[in-house]
């Protein structure tokens, strides 16, 4: 069911991308955490007053009086949704779609390895990379907070928040991975794999603005990830991430089944 040699190769390829993403996120996260101070918070609040639409669209609203509330607004509204999402889109394509598109999948399928095992290994590589990225984010947030504002961060809440983030990103990964397994052409596998999550995010931005388009939030899975709800420990928010996780599993299973049964014209 699992091929370690292939997994090792894919993880090696993932690491380089992960290092780049981790580097960029390190800069952002350390900057944002350091920005938490009442004065800066009031400046940001002024921004919100000047251009309320723009700030709420990217999720930067709400309580900024606690460190975790501040992080929830300024990291989990956009940055930590989009950066890992780009990683997931790139890798999900690289793990199956690219091989099929270029025909090099032949090197993987002309071997005494079940197709299911190939797809499962690739899925595991995708999930592992994501797990590493989110773990790094969590660790970085805790270390940064403890250095700059010792004792200020509620560790339990930040852990739950990041479990939620992992579930959301796994769900996005599931969409990309399924697209990668269904389509033989990179045009479609990337188009659908990146297009659907991007569209969902745009809908989320619209819904954040509120007013007449607020109901748009029922049309996007991003609604299932509710950072403020998770921090408050709301049951609905926890149910949301459970749904995302179950959905992710279903998408991955579907992808593996599709890959095992499809014709490969290579």
């Amino acid at each position: 069911m699992f091929n370690f040699t292939l997994y090792k190769r894919e993880m090696k390829k993932s690491i380089l991308t992960l290092v780049i993403f981790a580097g960029v996120l390190t800069i952002y996260i350390t900057m944002i955490v350091q920005m938490f101070d009442p004065e800066m918070a009031s400046i940001l609040n002024q921004f919100s007053e000047i251009m309320p639409g723009v700030m709420t669209a990217v999720g930067m609203s709400g309580t900024v009086t606690t460190l975790i509330g501040f992080m929830s607004s300024y990291l989990y509204g956009m940055l930590l949704l989009l950066f890992p999402m780009v990683y997931v889109v790139l890798r999900a394509h690289g793990l199956i779609g690219k091989y099929v598109d270029r025909g090099s999948i032949v090197a993987l399928v002309s071997a005494p390895i079940k197709r299911r095992a190939i797809a499962f290994t690739q899925m595991k590589a995708l999930a592992s990379g994501l797990f590493l990225l989110v773990s790094y984010i969590t660790l970085l947030e805790i270390v940064c907070s403890e250095v700059v504002f010792p004792g200020e961060l509620e560790i339990g809440s930040i852990l739950l928040l990041n479990v939620g983030l992992l579930c959301l990103q796994l769900f996005i990964g599931g969409i990309c991975f399924l697209a990668s397994c269904v389509f033989n052409d990179a045009k479609y596998s990337v188009g659908i794999g990146a297009g659907v999550p991007a569209l969902m995010y745009v809908i989320q931005m619209l819904a954040n603005i509120g007013g007449s388009v607020e109901n748009a939030r029922y049309a996007t899975f991003f609604t299932l990830f509710d950072p403020d709800g998770l921090i408050a420990g709301e049951t609905a928010a926890i149910a949301g991430i459970v749904v995302l996780f179950v959905g992710a599993c279903a998408l991955f299973v579907a992808a593996i089944v599709v890959f095992s049964k499809k014709d490969l014209h290579i």
């Binding site: 390829k13 025909g103 090197a107 993987l108 005494p112 290579i266």
Partner: peptide, 24 residues
Amino acid sequence: PGEIAFFDDMSSAEFLRFTAKYRG
């Protein structure tokens, strides 16, 4: 295969080593 398309990112020694281990 009629059309050779192996992993571009590998050297041929790496590819052959990978293939042998992967196939077992």
